[in-house]
């Protein structure tokens, strides 16, 4: 008996250990390395940054990289632009995704699985290919411009590709499924009688939506927004392929610092700032949710 319990405890420890080990190996450790590099100085060597401890064994770190991030307005602007872009895409995904998810959740069970399949179907094609396809659609002599000119709406092709609008379009298109799926999951579980009950008690259709459907879908809305906003913030491929040369988003800057300027310490500092920018609001949000949950009980 005692040994059985011990065995159980052992297994329990192992199962709990696995995710922690995973986080340690693939998150905390790389993060430590990046942090270490961000506190070093760039040098022309292999690897291209100064060691944390110099020849005499004393600690040699510097906050210069972070200071530089704050002194050069370019970085602040880039962060800001990335936030705006990601936020715009997130809002647009929510506005499009909510009615779609709602429609799927309320459709007949048989059509429902078909509709869900259609939502995930794009994943069967490489992400890169799909972004390339947008280049073909948006280009000066691409499908959209040709169609507009054929209709006679414009004489000259409109510049759509290589604009911020193209990035916004690409982000919205690529991340829409990540909004729809968690929203669908919460809406599908919701008891339809609740909306009827609200209307029965005097709420109009719109009021019932805001009183019942929206608050109950909140968990899905938050999950969807995070799933869209976070990767959209650091997106590299879409701004690179669809954006103009001046479309400086954080992912692009990160890439350039690492590979073009080979300034690994500065690039690491950029990465750490990006992480902070993403983690802090999430932590605040989760604290709020935990407090709400506590109040609820």
């Amino acid at each position: 008996m005692a040994s059985l319990i011990q065995k159980d405890r052992l297994w329990w420890h192992i199962t709990v250990l696995v995710p922690y080990l995973w986080l340690l190996l693939f998150f905390l450790l790389p993060f430590g390395i990046i942090l270490k590099i961000s506190l070093a100085e760039p040098i022309l060597a292999q690897p291209p940054f100064s060691p944390t401890f110099d020849d005499t064994g004393t600690l040699s770190i510097t906050a210069d990289n972070f200071a530089f991030l704050f002194s050069d307005k370019l970085y602040a602007l880039t962060y800001l632009k990335s936030v705006i872009m990601a936020a715009a895409a997130t809002i647009c995904c929510l506005l499009l995704g909510f009615p779609i998810a709602y429609g799927i959740a309320r459709s007949q069970p048989r059509t429902r699985s078909l509709l869900l399949l259609l939502i995930v179907l794009p994943f069967w094609i490489s992400f890169l290919l799909r972004v390339y396809a947008w280049m073909g659609l948006l280009g000066n002599y691409g499908v959209i411009n040709n169609f507009l000119m054929w209709l006679g709406i414009t004489e000259q092709p409109m510049q759509i590709l290589y604009t911020d609008f193209a990035i916004f379009l690409g982000l919205t298109y690529s991340y829409l499924p990540f909004m729809i799926l968690p929203l669908y999951a919460t809406l599908e579980r919701m008891d339809l009688d609740l909306v009827d009950a609200a209307m029965d008690l005097g709420a109009s259709r719109t009021t019932a939506f805001w009183d019942i459907t929206w608050p109950l879908a909140r968990a899905g809305v938050i999950a969807g927004c995070m799933l869209v906003f976070i990767p959209a913030m650091g997106e590299y491929v879409i701004p690179f392929l669809l954006g103009g040369p001046d479309a400086l988003l954080i992912g692009r800057v990160l890439f350039d610092e690492f590979y073009v300027n080979r300034d690994w310490p500065l690039a690491s500092a950029v990465a750490i700032m990006l992480l902070l920018l993403l983690v802090v609001p999430i932590v605040i949000l989760q604290k709020n949710q935990a407090r709400d949950a506590e109040q609820a009980t």
Binding site: D191, D193, D196, A197, A198, D200, L201, G202, A203, D211
Partner: peptide, 28 residues
């Protein structure tokens, strides 16, 4: 429409609003 009728309904599933307290449900 339902919201303008002098009629109220008790649902089989009870349809209690899960995000409101007993009091708020009743006062809705």
């Amino acid at each position: 429409p339902a919201y303008d009728r002098p009629v109220n309904m008790m649902f089989q599933s009870y349809a209690i609003f899960p995000h409101m307290s007993v009091e708020k449900n009743i006062a809705y």
